[in-house]
């Protein structure tokens, strides 16, 4: 029921594209995407990460809610996530390369099938983040904002929805993203995300402090730790007995 996101997809949220509404990825947009990939550390640095464990704290101050999330990855596509929310319980979700599954206090344990599983598989594609042009069917630079950020208007290749990305040039630093969170069978909701702080972890950079507005509520997310190439027991990716 509740879907989570891998580090790889987190880095990827702005994806790139092929061709639909506006035709293609404009060279100017492509250049910014490439700068951003370079800023994050580049393809080679990410390719060297075979496994990773990421911990994140999230809070919704207005609602008094906090969440702790741990995500474990193994290339090319295995992922395991657990989330704990006080008063709600622990939710787990995994994909072992073949089967997706979820366990949570409300829905119990169940396999992830159909579109839900497709989404989970997509989220485990850690390379996606570095190939922004693969995520969007089109992207074009539309204007320079008063705050100095460059706006790129993109069409998501998967769902055809408009996404607005705001980059700080010339380093290609993504500062903000406005898009519709398409959760497949669970619906869709507009979200505005700001990437407040990036930090270098080894050879890569991560947006370690992020804030978002959705449905009139603010959410703040902080990556509290990131361990690349950790030892991972493959059994965690399988649905527990």
């Amino acid at each position: 029921m509740v879907r989570f996101l891998s580090l790889w997809a987190m880095v990827a949220f702005t994806g790139g594209g092929t061709t639909v509404l506006y035709g293609e990825i404009e060279p100017a947009a492509q250049k910014i995407f490439a700068s951003y990939a370079e800023f994050l550390g580049g393809v080679d640095a990410f390719e060297e990460i075979d496994t990773a464990r990421l911990k994140m704290s999230m809070e919704m101050p207005g609602l008094g809610m906090n969440m702790e999330r741990t995500v474990t990855f193994k290339a090319p596509d295995k992922v395991y996530m657990d989330v704990y929310i006080q008063g709600y319980g622990k939710m787990r979700q995994g994909f072992d390369g073949e089967n997706g599954w979820a366990i949570d206090p409300i829905q119990g344990r169940r396999p992830l099938m159909g579109r839900e599983l497709d989404q989970l598989k997509d989220e485990t594609n850690f390379r996606e983040g570095l190939y922004l042009a693969d995520k969007y069917s089109s992207a074009r630079v539309v204007r320079k904002r008063e705050d100095g950020l460059t706006t790129i208007e993109c069409i998501n290749a998967d769902n055809g929805l408009l996404e607005m990305l705001y980059f700080e040039e010339p380093i290609g630093l993504l500062r903000r993203s406005d898009y519709t969170e398409d959760m497949g069978p669970q619906g869709s909701v507009p979200v505005s995300v700001r990437f407040d702080v990036y930090e270098k972890v080894g050879d890569i950079r991560l947006p370690v402090e992020t804030s978002a507005d959705m449905m009139g509520t603010s959410v703040r997310a902080v990556i509290t730790s990131f361990e690349p190439n950790v030892e991972v027991d493959d059994s965690i990716f399988k649905l527990p007995e």
Partner: peptide, 12 residues
């Protein structure tokens, strides 16, 4: 990155 907020979307 933004997609990590899905959990909240559902919970809220």
């Amino acid at each position: 990155m933004g997609r990590c907020f899905k959990t909240w979307l559902i919970l809220v």
